[in-house]
């Protein structure tokens, strides 16, 4: 892709039109911000597909229809395949210049929807798959998913005498997707909203499948004050527990390479889901971060 040709999007030139409005997401919901901004980038000619999950649950409560453009709820495991069908149907009907976009949660993507996503990338169907990652199955009441990080208290990974909450690490979804040799993939965070919208804008130009994994805080599931949603999603990047990167033309690229990480304990202390963690467990998290970054820096330059 010729990136120089793509005009940057910002607060000034992004459309005034709102496409995700009047929804019933919790106050301060990070996922809803990701959906809102992505749809502003994609505009009137978009078809959104939402598997079961919070964004589907809060957007389509008859007769309150919060999507101000085409949108459909798919089966939980079938968002990518339904999106493929929409793209294929429009193509066959000669409806041109449309954008099919999926907004799926971490569970809907990294767990139950992974097979359909893999199929869509394999076929290189023209669609943008956006995974808003709030690190648990929120809509069903905060259960552990494949993207729940180590040490997270969820309703199925209770923190108690014997266990520190979740004992598995976050699945490496971005690299799993990239390993398909997808045309374009990126990670993002709602804490870096301009970076996110410009990645969506890049994905919009891809003639094939593209994927964005956006870190999206959930005050309800994370035990954070509603007003800090954007701040906490930024901190996750700044302390190195999340990263901003792209995969394009077969190459990984790190968009932010902090010289120094912000403090993990600071980030963790602010969230109810991590409150129980001991110093040793926090050290484990720091060590895992350092190991990951050593690899990323070595391989992705």
């Amino acid at each position: 892709m010729d990136n120089t040709a793509i005009k940057k999007i910002n607060a000034k030139n992004i459309t005034d039109k709102e496409y995700f409005y009047g929804h019933k997401a919790c106050a301060g919901c990070g996922g809803s911000l990701a959906v809102r901004q992505a749809l502003k980038v994609l505009g009137d000619r978009s078809y959104s597909v939402l598997p079961a999950g919070c964004m589907a649950a809060v957007g389509f409560i008859y007769p309150q229809m919060a999507f101000n453009s085409n949108a459909v709820i798919s089966m939980f495991p079938g968002s990518a395949s339904m999106a493929s069908g929409i793209t294929a149907g429009n193509k066959a009907l000669g409806v041109e210049d449309t954008h099919t976009v999926v907004f799926a949660g971490d569970g809907g993507t990294a767990d139950i929807g992974l097979q359909a996503l893999s199929g869509a990338i394999d076929r290189d169907d023209k669609l943008i798959y956006i995974c808003y990652d709030n690190e648990a199955y929120m809509n069903t009441g905060i259960q552990k998913s494949g993207l729940t990080p180590f040490g997270t208290k969820t309703t199925t990974t209770p923190a108690g005498k014997n266990l520190p909450g979740s004992i598995t690490e976050k699945k490496n979804l971005f690299e799993i997707v990239a390993a398909h040799d997808i045309k374009y993939a990126a990670t993002a965070s709602i804490g870096y909203i301009n970076d996110f919208i410009n990645k969506v804008n890049k994905a919009k130009q891809v003639d094939g499948t593209s994927f964005i994994h956006v870190y999206a805080s959930c005050p309800t599931g994370w035990g954070t004050p509603t007003e800090t949603s954007v701040e906490i999603a930024k901190e996750a990047v700044d302390c190195g527990l999340w990263y901003l990167a792209e995969y394009e033309n077969g190459e990984f690229k790190l968009n932010r390479n902090p010289k120094e990480f912000k403090s993990i304990p600071e980030y963790i202390k602010k969230q109810g889901r991590f409150k129980h963690l001991t110093d040793d467990q926090i050290k484990h998290i720091e060590a895992a971060r350092d190991k990951k970054w050593a690899r990323i820096r070595k391989n992705w330059g």
């Binding site: 106050a27 309150q64 229809m65 919060a66 999507f67 101000n68 453009s69």
Partner: peptide, 16 residues
């Protein structure tokens, strides 16, 4: 079937 005009709002969120 369960399909309806997009952007059709019937109530506000101010009460939250």
């Amino acid at each position: 079937g369960p399909g309806f005009q997009g952007g059709h709002l019937v109530d506000k969120n101010a009460g939250w």
